[in-house]
């Protein structure tokens, strides 16, 4: 199934797509990082952006939240062309987004609680007491209500990430973006984060885009996805991580999804095996 969908231009926009990218090319300066990226994120789904290190997963995510203007292509949010119009247009659309950055990216000069209350103070008319209650609730959801008055430098990396998640949820966004949520977390914390993401999706009806190469969590939560290739700088497969693992015929995707170490051409591989066999 994955191979049938690699012709990007042949993909038709889906009716229930909340976010849709068409032939997006991104890069810095004149350096292209990924080209011809087309994808549709269905409402309420968990969409995974996969690929090896340095293939541009995070860059795609950065462009989807407005931090990097694509060199060409069209990106629409709920049918609205994201990159058209003035900055205020994007700011308005971004109100529907929440982003968890790789490092948590808490504002270091503010306490954990202030990190979450700042967007609420900026964009809502709630009074101080109500904001405090909301902040306590959001921190409670991620198990951090005790850390409300601590500074980011006083809590651990995993806690920063959870606090970052609470901040991403501050304004009850429709769409949550996660940039490598489980990187640097131990397996138990990581599994708990997966549960949390699933609960958020089910409880709040959020649509989730997740950049990751943490296979267990991808298999556990994602129900659609795209696989980017670093060498050809193009997407090479579409589909849910489980489907790609079981059915994708592309050797690179297969190797990635099944966690095989050797991805070189078959010839080099067997030659090495031959050498090893000689020794035994």
């Amino acid at each position: 199934m994955a191979d049938g969908q690699t012709r990007e231009t042949a993909r038709k926009p889906e009716d229930d797509a909340l976010l849709s990218l068409r032939d997006i090319t991104i890069g810095y300066g004149t350096k292209v990082i990924q080209s011809d990226v087309s994808l549709d994120v269905r409402r309420g789904s968990i969409f995974a952006i996969m690929g090896g290190s340095g293939c541009g997963k995070s860059t795609i995510l950065r462009s989807m939240v407005g931090l990097l203007r694509p060199m060409s292509g069209k990106y629409s949010v709920d049918g609205d062309d994201y990159w058209s119009g003035p900055d205020s247009h994007r700011t308005a659309l971004n109100r529907r987004f929440g982003v968890l950055f790789q490092s948590g990216a808490l504002w270091s000069s503010m306490t954990v609680g202030e990190n979450i209350s700042l967007p609420l103070e900026m964009f809502t008319r709630l009074n101080k007491d109500m904001i405090r209650h909301l902040v306590e609730m959001k921190l409670g959801l991620v198990g951090l209500s005790h850390a409300i008055d601590l500074y980011p430098s006083e809590i651990s990396g995993g806690m920063c990430k959870r606090a970052g998640l609470a901040r991403a949820m501050a304004l009850d966004p429709d769409v949550l973006f996660f940039d490598e949520p489980s990187a640097g977390l131990d397996p138990v914390t990581s599994a708990r984060l997966d549960d949390l993401i699933l609960t958020l999706r089910d409880g709040l009806g959020a649509t989730i885009i997740i950049v990751s190469h943490e296979l267990p969590s991808l298999f556990a939560i994602a129900d659609d996805g795209i696989f980017l290739d670093a060498r050809t700088k193009k997407p090479i497969a579409h589909g849910s991580p489980r489907d790609l693992r079981d059915h994708c015929t592309d050797p690179q995707v297969h190797a990635f999804m099944n966690r095989e170490a050797r991805t070189e051409p078959a010839g080099a591989d067997t030659a090495r095996k031959g050498q090893n066999a000689n020794g035994k």
Partner: peptide, 13 residues
């Protein structure tokens, strides 16, 4: 480098 500026920009702050 810590993505704090990015976080501000995404929120539109």
């Amino acid at each position: 480098g810590n993505e704090e500026i990015d976080a501000l920009r995404v929120f539109g702050i």
